[in-house]
């Protein structure tokens, strides 16, 4: 598997560390229910899924990767930082 890091280019998946589904992070004071859902509940879809990967053995960037969990097709990669800032500025989903 290869992931196209926006900073470094396409790299072997051995350079990346997987975290899981890219879920919106609750506010720190969002309460136990919201945090429990965030930590424990996953949709686990068969198909496209937004995921978080870190280019740990490369630039260190956290990436928001859209990947098809059935075919492993890489449908899109953006820097998580950019996606987060765009969402804050109302330019896209978190």
């Amino acid at each position: 598997m290869r992931i196209a890091c926006p900073l470094c280019g396409a790299r072997d998946r051995r350079e990346f560390t997987y975290r899981g589904a890219a879920l919106p992070v609750p506010a720190l004071d969002a309460g136990a229910e919201a945090w429990s859902v965030h930590v424990h509940l996953r949709e686990n879809p068969a198909g496209p899924l937004e995921e978080l990967w870190q280019h740990e053995l490369g630039c260190g960037a956290w990436l928001k990767v859209r990947r098809d969990t059935v075919t492993h097709a890489m449908l899109g990669v953006v820097l998580a930082e950019d996606a987060g800032l765009a969402a804050r500025d109302g330019e896209g989903p978190a």
Partner: peptide, 17 residues
């Protein structure tokens, strides 16, 4: 290693601002 990745996670994903 874990803490380094965690710091990067917090600053890039949780608080990119």
């Amino acid at each position: 290693g874990q803490v380094m990745a965690h710091l990067e996670y917090l600053s890039q994903v949780a608080r990119p601002d």
